[in-house]
Each structure stands twice: as C-alpha cells, then as structure tokens.
Amino acid sequence: MTTVPQPTALDPALAARLKRDDAGLVCAVVQQHDTGEVLMVGWMDDEALARTLGTGRVTFWSRSRQEPWRKGDTSGHVLVRSVALDCDGDALLVRVDQVGPACHTGSRTCFDGRDLGAVVGPDLASVDAVDAVDAVDTLETMVGERP
C-alpha cells in the first residue's frame, strides 16, 4: 500500500495574509455548504490549513491535546467544498458536506439548543427611514476611519 504524503507547507502568499492569535492559530467556522447551518468552530495552524486545502478533509489544531486532528475520523466524514478567508485575515469559513454528527456529543451541530436568550433586535421593516439613513452614514464613517 502506497502512502500519499500529506501537504504540510502553506503557500507563502496565503500564509502572509493570515492574522494568527498568540498561539499561531486562526479561527475556522465550519458551515454546511447547502443550508448555511453553522456546525462547529475549530482552530487551524498553518499545517492544518495546508492539509485541509490539500486533502479535501478538514484538519484542525487541537488546543487541548496540542496536536493536529482530522475532523471526521471519529465523528463522521466531512468533505470540504470551499475555504474562504475573511477580509481581516483572522478567520476562515470552511464550507463542508457533513455526513453524520459534527459535534463530539453526537449532535449534528455544536450549537444545538444552546440559545443564551439574547434580546432580539428590532425588525428592520419597522425601522424609521431616517434612522436607517443615519445608521448607514454612521457605518460609512466607521469604515472610512479603519486603518
């Protein structure tokens, strides 16, 4: 049986775009590709991202075990559909085709039934047009002031 080498080196141009935390990790949000359901959040170092991009299977860095782990080896198969980097370079969106549970508890998603009871914002249809224009002006100012 021939062993296929796992990619471990991230493209330098992509690596330069990443903004990592103090541990060298980037947050990765995993989302079901066709429904938009958020399944879980994990962390990737450069090697985990390189493996994810090069194999079609999601690899994370386990902060508790301090080692890489490939998602799906114990909880079900995960097939990568796409990986996107956010505008700041500090978060990844990994769109997958999840088969089986995504959570180690056996749930489809790590976010099942864990609503914290946040106050629900106003219905946008009920927002006064003047308030909406003010909000857009405020956002434009904020964006224009960003470094």
Rank of each mutant, 00 (worst) to 15 (best):
H104S: 10
E67M: 07
S75L: 07
D97C: 11
D46I: 08
V30P: 00
D128G: 09
A15P: 13
A23P: 15
V133H: 14
G117I: 09
D86E: 08
D21V: 11
W43V: 05
A16M: 10
L10S: 06
G89L: 06
H33R: 14
R108T: 12
D134Y: 13
Q98D: 10
H77S: 14
T109H: 04
T74V: 06
D112L: 03
R57H: 02
G42K: 00
H77K: 15
T141I: 07
G24Q: 01
D134T: 07
G54V: 01
R81F: 04
F60K: 00
L14W: 00
A102N: 03
T109C: 04
V143G: 08
V30M: 13
A129M: 11
Q98M: 14
L139T: 08
D90G: 08
A9V: 11
L92D: 00
L139Q: 09
A84S: 14
W61N: 03
S126R: 12
G42V: 01
R17G: 14
G72V: 06
G56L: 11
R51C: 07
L93H: 12
G36Q: 08
G89P: 15
S62M: 10
A132R: 02
H33D: 02
V119E: 10
V30N: 05
Q66L: 14
Q6N: 05
A132M: 02
T105Q: 06
G36R: 05
G56A: 15
T105S: 04
D88L: 01
L116R: 15
L39K: 04
H104C: 07
R65M: 11
R57W: 00
G72S: 07
V29M: 08
D34S: 06
F60W: 10
L10F: 02
V130P: 13
S75W: 01
V41P: 08
R95E: 00
L85A: 09
K19T: 03
P68S: 00
L139G: 06
R114F: 14
D128N: 15
T8P: 14
A102Q: 02
D34V: 12
Q6I: 00
R57G: 10
T138S: 07
